[in-house]
């Protein structure tokens, strides 16, 4: 079965073609993400980022690019999978309307996919991972722990109460005057710094050991920077200490969840999964506990349409399809 995936829940418009023979086992034939160049080229100039109208410009070229890279014509597809939430309604609608148009004109079945389900299943694009497994989804917009019991059966065990971990990285980097994207810069700088250089608090959510909170450490960075000690501390030490705090606050609940629910495999996914210290510490902690960590490669950690195609393909294979009246939902729960 050949499936076209379309994703436009936030900043990136993406399209992918996967080929699958059995649920969760797929070959990625093409996975394209529209970058600013595509948008600027289409507009003939620089435009403000993040507006849904950028997606309007980018979506068709990126779909055409994915089909061309895969060497597959629309008529050869067996179905279309599209993100229907959660995300920005204006952005979601662009991908969804586009999918509906293609489904109607081609007669192909279409299914709507939850963006988070895509992230949870992303490791299957490259690895064989037996269910059930525990997944830590950690990105600029999400920080949550899920038990993946089966396709379509996901149990949320914990989530952030305030900021997402990726957001904390970006904002801390901004406070330290390091630029954007903060996660990558802090990761690189931290290699030259001492992780115990500055004592930052490790927040725990009272009565909810599997939940996260990153708002406090962000404020702690701001307060520390405004102090005399803050001005005298090397940025490398500051970066490494902040990163260590965030990493520990991610690793502890994840290991606790793995133990509590007997998960042998921990999947690390989402954009922050690219952080080298997080990979290192989580893998070490898991190994010491007799568990293993699986993480998709970077292009499948960040937002992409291959994971959406994979999640949708499971339903398409069962012969399911959504009506063309399907709506986008900003707060779509999983």
């Amino acid at each position: 079965m050949k499936v076209l995936g379309i994703e436009s829940s936030c900043d990136d418009a993406a399209a992918a073609v996967i080929e699958t023979g059995a649920p969760g086992i797929a070959t990625v034939r093409a996975s394209a993400v529209a970058n600013q160049d595509d948008i600027h080229r289409a507009y003939g100039g620089v435009v403000p980022e993040l507006a849904s109208r950028n997606h309007v410009v980018a979506i068709m070229p990126v779909i055409a690019r994915a089909l061309a890279e895969a060497g597959i014509a629309l008529a050869e597809l067996d179905g279309i999978a599209v993100t229907r939430g959660p995300g920005l309604v204006g952005s979601l609608l662009v991908g969804l309307m586009c999918a509906k148009g293609l489904a109607q004109s081609s007669g192909l079945p279409m299914v709507g996919v939850n963006h988070l389900e895509g992230h949870l299943l992303a490791p299957l694009l490259e690895h064989r991972v037996a269910m059930p497994y525990l997944a830590l989804v950690v990105s600029g917009g999400h920080t949550a722990l899920f038990m993946v019991e089966d396709f379509g059966r996901y149990r949320r065990l914990g989530a952030t109460r305030d900021d997402a971990a990726g957001e904390a990285f970006d904002k801390a980097a901004k406070l330290m005057g390091l630029g954007y994207p903060g996660g990558k810069i802090i990761d690189e700088m931290s290699r030259k710094g001492r992780p115990n250089g500055v004592k930052f608090p490790r927040a725990r959510v009272k009565g909810a050991p599997l939940d996260f909170s990153f708002s406090g450490v962000k404020t702690a960075v701001a307060v520390f920077l405004a102090s005399e000690a803050g001005a005298a501390t090397a940025r490398e030490d500051l970066a490494a200490s902040f990163q260590e705090a965030v990493v520990e606050m991610l690793v502890r609940p994840t290991l606790a969840a793995a133990r509590e629910h007997g998960a042998e495999t921990i999947v690390l996914t989402g954009g922050v999964a690219a952080n080298s210290r997080l990979r290192e510490r989580l893998s070490a902690a898991a190994a010491a506990d007799g568990r293993r960590v699986v993480a998709p490669s970077f292009r499948f950690c960040t937002d992409n349409a291959a994971m959406i195609a994979l999640a949708g393909s499971v339903r398409l294979m069962r012969g399911e399809r959504d009506p063309l009246t399907l709506d986008a939902e900003a707060n779509l729960p999983l």
């Binding site: 936030c10 993040l50 959660p86 995300g87 920005l88 309604v89 990105s139 600029g140 917009g141 999400h142 952030t160 109460r161 305030d162 900021d163 997402a164 990726g166 957001e167 904002k171 708002s215 900003a330 707060n331």
Partner: peptide
């Protein structure tokens, strides 16, 4: 209260 998360990424939450 725990429904209120930072909307930095999603930009709008209803």
């Amino acid at each position: 209260e725990e429904q209120i998360l930072s909307p930095t990424f999603t930009m709008i939450q209803e």
